[in-house]
């Protein structure tokens, strides 16, 4: 069995889950801190801020999803399949879109959501718009996820 191929595939899965997860945790933490400040003054806005805080969390899930797709693909749960270095490299590259876009878009989305907290602090009735702005950021994570999945599908083992 060629170890290098497996290692590269593992690296791809680790990057996808790891980087996107880092991005999401930073993003969620940013929103959480701003929200905590607001809630100290106005506990009634808890529900609204919770929605905003959840927004940057999805990138981590997308990353995890791609990681699992890789795991299934190479049979990491159960018996490992043979993966050539070339295939391993292809898997690693396929993971990069969601890993990188996940990392940066989650942080960016966290900032946008934090700004929306400022918005609902003053105009709670504008929650809908406050959700939309950060949700725009996520589009690119979604596109990256699709790209990663399509690329992974393209790797034949």
């Amino acid at each position: 069995m060629d170890i290098l191929g497996i290692v590269l595939a593992f690296a791809g899965a680790a990057l996808a889950a790891g980087l996107a997860g880092i991005g999401s945790s930073i993003g969620v933490s940013i929103v959480g801190q701003v929200a905590a400040g607001l809630i100290t003054e106005e506990p009634g806005k808890f529900g609204q801020t919770l929605i905003l805080q959840a927004l940057p969390g999805t990138q981590g899930i997308y990353g995890l999803l791609v990681a699992f797709l890789v795991i299934f693909k190479i049979g990491a749960i159960g018996t490992l399949k043979a993966v050539t270095p070339g295939q391993g490299m292809a898997i690693l590259l396929a993971c990069l879109p969601i890993a990188l876009v996940g990392l940066f878009s989650a942080i960016a989305q966290g900032q946008a959501a934090a700004a929306s907290i400022g918005l609902i602090a003053r105009r709670p009735e504008e929650l809908g718009k406050g959700i939309i702005y950060p949700a725009f950021v996520e589009t690119y994570a979604v596109l990256a996820l699709i790209a990663s999945i399509l690329l992974l599908q393209g790797v034949a083992l």
Binding site: Q33, A36, L38
Partner: peptide, 17 residues
Amino acid sequence: NDIRYAYATGRIRSLQK
């Protein structure tokens, strides 16, 4: 943006009202 101020800013945004 200075992340250390996230909590404080959230509170101030509410107090500004």
